[in-house]
Nucleic acid binder design. Structure first.
Length: 216
DNA sequence: ACCCAGGGTCATA
DNA sequence: TATGACCATGGG
């Protein structure tokens, strides 16, 4: 099964090429984006980020200062503005208490992960996004696309929990942040390319696009 | 008019 | 552990 996982990665990599995630200027913007993207399409989150950038607010201090209602108005395109305003606030207050990015970077991955998960509004997927793309830790992000696509490939049954899937993929791949980050990005690319408006997608184009690649 | 998106929390059983 | 309600905008 380990081999099969590696083959799927290779096939996706050949089919879609380098993804170079996360699309952000710096680590802080990435982390803000990770909260904004929750249950939203990327263009919506990007509009919210553009609004913040235009106002010069993509810095921890600035973002901490402004009022809740103003922040909510700026991030509204990302959806759930009041919820995400709270979550950003929780994250920013936590981040402020730390000794800066460098200090966080020195922490062991499991400790850093626990810290992130302790922030209300940061769940496993968001935490793992931050770990792999901002802190470059060797972590695999399990999202809805990963579950669907892996199930179609027979890599999982569908009953596995988040941590179990993460453990399987991490165990089958090199301990390499870049590779694991690419894997997640490739799954999103493939999901967007094939499965939009077809969530269950029986007999999906995955076969057309990927079975061929897997054979070759 | 409906369904969904690169989720997460909280209440409930 | 496992559902369900809720958040809420923008695109197909």
């Amino acid at each position: 099964m380990k081999r099969r996982i590696a083959e799927v990665y290779k096939a996706l990599s050949r089919a879609y090429g380098p993804q170079d995630w996360w699309p952000a200027e710096d680590a802080f913007e990435m982390m803000v984006g990770a909260i904004l993207i929750q249950h939203t399409a990327w263009p919506n989150a990007e509009k919210a980020l553009d609004n913040l950038r235009r106002e010069g607010l993509l810095e921890p201090q600035r973002l901490l200062r402004i009022s809740g209602p103003r922040l909510a108005a700026l991030i509204r395109p990302a959806g759930m503005p009041r919820v995400k305003t709270k979550r950003l606030g929780n994250f920013l207050r936590w981040y402020q208490k730390q000794g800066g990015f460098e200090d966080l970077q020195r922490r062991a991955t499991p400790d850093l992960r626990s810290e992130l998960l302790a922030v209300n509004g940061i769940g496993r997927e968001t935490a793992d996004d931050v770990l792999v793309y901002a802190f470059r830790r060797p972590v695999f992000v399990v999202d809805a696309y990963a579950r669907r696509i892996f199930r179609r490939f027979g890599l999982i049954s569908g009953a596995e929990g988040y941590e179990e899937i993460r453990r399987r993929i991490e165990g089958a791949m090199p301990d390499d942040p870049h590779r694991l980050g690419e894997f997640h990005a490739l799954l999103v690319a493939h999901g967007k390319a094939t499965c939009r408006s077809r969530p269950l997608c029986d007999g999906c184009c995955l076969r057309r696009r990927c079975a061929r690649n897997l054979e070759g």
